[in-house]
Design a protein around this nucleic acid. Sequence first.
DNA 1: CATGAATGAGGCTTCATTCAT
DNA 2: CATGAATGAAGCCTCATTCAT
Lengths: 222, 222, 222, 222
Amino acid sequence: MKYPLAFGLGETPSLPKQERSRRTREKLIQAAAQLFEERGFEKTTSNDIAAAAGVSIGSFYAYFSDKRQLLLLLFEQRLAERLDAVFSNFTEEDLIGNDLRGCIERCIHRTFVNKAETPGLTRLIYDLASKDEAVGALCRRLMDDSVQNLAALLRKAISLNLTSLDDPWVTATTIVYAVEAVARKCVLEDELPEPAWKPYILCLTDMTYSFVFGRQARPTCR
Amino acid sequence: MKYPLAFGLGETPSLPKQERSRRTREKLIQAAAQLFEERGFEKTTSNDIAAAAGVSIGSFYAYFSDKRQLLLLLFEQRLAERLDAVFSNFTEEDLIGNDLRGCIERCIHRTFVNKAETPGLTRLIYDLASKDEAVGALCRRLMDDSVQNLAALLRKAISLNLTSLDDPWVTATTIVYAVEAVARKCVLEDELPEPAWKPYILCLTDMTYSFVFGRQARPTCR
Amino acid sequence: MKYPLAFGLGETPSLPKQERSRRTREKLIQAAAQLFEERGFEKTTSNDIAAAAGVSIGSFYAYFSDKRQLLLLLFEQRLAERLDAVFSNFTEEDLIGNDLRGCIERCIHRTFVNKAETPGLTRLIYDLASKDEAVGALCRRLMDDSVQNLAALLRKAISLNLTSLDDPWVTATTIVYAVEAVARKCVLEDELPEPAWKPYILCLTDMTYSFVFGRQARPTCR
Amino acid sequence: MKYPLAFGLGETPSLPKQERSRRTREKLIQAAAQLFEERGFEKTTSNDIAAAAGVSIGSFYAYFSDKRQLLLLLFEQRLAERLDAVFSNFTEEDLIGNDLRGCIERCIHRTFVNKAETPGLTRLIYDLASKDEAVGALCRRLMDDSVQNLAALLRKAISLNLTSLDDPWVTATTIVYAVEAVARKCVLEDELPEPAWKPYILCLTDMTYSFVFGRQARPTCR
DNA sequence: CATGAATGAGGCTTCATTCAT
DNA sequence: CATGAATGAAGCCTCATTCAT
């Protein structure tokens, strides 16, 4: 890029100097993610991370102010992937569609999958939430987003006369936390394989569906 | 109190050895409980505990093999108080009584109160569950007991034809974890005062009741 | 020696437990003093001090919060010995005695001796005065005491009509700093042996004497 | 400026190599001077210097073997400016002129001004003099030059029968160190503004004048 | 020449644990 | 039993210096 004719012909459009640096940083982040997952935060030392990344401890401190900052970075990176949590891909059209129950089920299933994809890091987040204020804030934001999302849907459902809940926020909170808790237990704690999630997902789906939509739908006996 | 006749008369010449020793031990346990609650496990040093208990660090190691063992001991002590968790005081008579809903509500309320009584220690348990195998086992046992308890009740309800659940274990798990999660959020995370628990408790009660017993109420429609 | 007869009658009123501890502390202080003198502050590590004292690094931090605090302690200890600096043993009687010049000379000589007794530590103090605020304050206090002392004497001399200075404080400052500077050069910088101090001490004496008392003595033209 | 004909015409095609290099070097020296003054030697890192100079750390080591060498270089540069210290601009004509006292006063004043011009660097020199052999040597050389200078003047004064000192070297040493010490105190330590120097300068002038030339002046009783 | 990423020795400090009294 | 001084492994972090580009 700097010497397009004399040197740059062909490949390597990437920055020459910064490239090595970027890779070192990346190696550190990867190593940290793995070690944090394997051993937890406290039991991973900055020296461990540097060693696992195959770089010197000096490089570690060139890129991150300390272990905790790297951890936060990691969270922020993964946050985006997880922000579509629980009921985020549940649209208003789904509410009036004819596969409401299926939609709910898929949303719940998605929550299980989310956890299964990065089990170590997810565990880590929960562990640290109570210790580190910043991590706690991230977690709460994540959950709040989910609750807010679902509450908005419930409000819509109310206005569409699909249900007669009186407190959509409390209901949303209850559902989101229930789904989260069961997903955590199945995936992170018991480490059940995906097929074994089924009954739990169905149970949560039933409970949610009957609780939210059972009220209105039933007078006519369907 | 333990030796009312043999020792309790007079002025306890120089404190029976075993009595003094028991007290030292107790002081250490109390101090540890408080410090663990306040600062968490990792940030409490064994020297801190001894100092807070007003005894020497040497005594600490005379009574406990290490910090972790003391922690486990603490848990076991508190475990008993908490073993009546969630639905443990829900009897079979309640099932056929005419205040089923009120009984459920009281059980859920009890879970909230349980957490509010020792918030620090409860937080601690959750924090350590994923780090320390033994703590994790204790936690799981606690939850399992609750689930088992409720599952037994559900089975009973099925046999009494009060509900038509097909998987009492999964249902019990879902309910217990849902109640736990919401209680944790309200009490430990948001630190809501008791009156503010109400809507959440009602929501959980409704959800549980409608999910479990709502099926039976509808005989005429099916 | 520790338990001479039964237990404490006779000698050794000193604390038994604290004794070992006091010795460790003392060993550390001694070792630090020597190392600081030999290598200076920055080039002495806390590990060096512990090693030189023959104790573990842990003990170092049991007694001192860090290297700097130990240094300050050292200064405060030595401060007392040095507070009788420059003109402190110059009494008002000396002013009207018939060996005024001899008294001045002895005071100046004392300043040289003072520095020769703990050359390393004295050097250290000067080195650190500009780096460390607390050390600087100590140094300034030391000098100020000397100046104040001499200024008081000069004021007395004025009131006795022995001299006609108009600014005793400035004069005192000048004399004290002049004596200090020359003493420092001879003793600490050039490391002259005591006999070689003589001409410098005489020169300072002459200068001081003629400057302060030369004015009044001269009306008669000698 | 150095190659006005050979290079100065035209637009400096791409900056003559040696010129660019000279500038890089100069930037480093300037940055170092400033940082050393501000923070002291130990607290200034080589990376800080390079950063402040706006060049890479690699360049730093291309021009200087290490931090210490750069410091020495700095001293040597500033040495020249300061070599006219204390009595260097005191000529033999002044000795026989009719403003001898005024000349002395101006010389002393010059010493104060010298320090006030580069307070940070001057402090630095004193700080390092005892740590670094080379810096110490530079300092001593500086002082020796002043002493030698003054001693030569005093010898001249003796030969002109203006005074009757018996040891011009010791006298010169005493005067030079006295002036230095008071100047240091006023300017570097107390950071007095220039007007406040006056009484000290007058006191030093008086003391010097009366000590050196008071002897000769007295036959006539003034 | 300039760059700046990488290095790693070495300093600082904590704290679980031991052991002589 | 109680004491608390002593221990030292182990973590954290800095910064002078090198070297490949």
